[in-house]
Design a binder for these strands. Structure first.
Lengths: 132, 132
DNA sequence: CCTGTTATAGACTTTAGGAATCCATAATAA
DNA sequence: TTATTATGGATTCCTAAAGTCTATAACAGG
């Protein structure tokens, strides 16, 4: 079980949008260069972030991506869900009704993780970076 | 990102060992029948549990698997780690030194989840089942 | 010391999803 | 109208999960 690399890229892309260019839109070209990924591949993830309502895009000259919400209102969980989807990490495949105690335990542990990720905002990390 | 189905099987197999046969060893044949999996496939997971020190195996007639520790000392995390391995869920692929703030956040969230899973013992669930 | 029973190991196949590329198309600012 | 930028679909490559098959090792019981 691992987070996809796409999530890694998306998190770093969001952090870049916040720290390096809070005002002007950033194109996928520059972004891809900074992260060391191909443009076409990265654009897939950016599109997901757009559809999730985290950023907004503009085509045409001087277009690119910009935050849609305030950076204090974008959590790690938001980004991760946008890329990985919101399905549960664990689904029991047995047929013992819908009441699997094992599943309940694992899902509760997942909730613990998500609670932390939901409280951690992209702004928190941005501040730490600028403090250096 | 998902838990493998093997983890699902292993968790259920362990729960069966505890609830249905705390005394006598259980063979993979019976176990596989109860879970609805093939013997050879399930045996792979049982072997991992053996190597992790959670259960012990005995060959020959009347052999099978038995707990090695007390059921109060076997956590969900023990079982999951035995099957999935202990590698981190997230590894930053960028080259910005070993100090990736994003990675630190995600790893801390993982710790939250693991703490819950480490405190949840197989005995806890076994008790709930018997209460019904 | 056999014989049946059981676990372990390795090789192998199939399938699904991640990772990435390429190209065509839509939108829009200058 | 043109250059610029995002979006979308099709396609390829590769790895890991999921599962099967078969051979081998270990051992209890007669």
């Amino acid at each position: 079980m691992k987070y996809s690399q796409a999530t890694d890229y998306a998190l770093h892309a969001m952090l870049y949008l916040v720290t390096a260019a809070p005002d002007k839109p950033v194109g996928v070209q520059l972004l891809a260069e900074k992260l060391g990924v191909s443009q076409t591949y990265l654009s897939k993830m950016m599109t997901k972030l757009v559809k999730a309502g985290l950023i907004q895009s503009a085509t045409g000259a001087n277009g690119g991506y910009r935050l849609r919400r305030k950076q204090e209102d974008i959590s790690f969980l938001d980004i991760i869900h946008a890329i990985e989807g919101t399905a549960s990490l664990f689904e029991c495949s047995m047929d013992h009704g819908s009441e699997c105690l094992i599943q309940q335990v694992v899902m509760e542990s997942e909730r613990q993780m998500e609670q932390y990720l939901g409280n951690k905002k992209i702004a928190d990390v941005a501040k730490l970076m600028q403090a250096k």
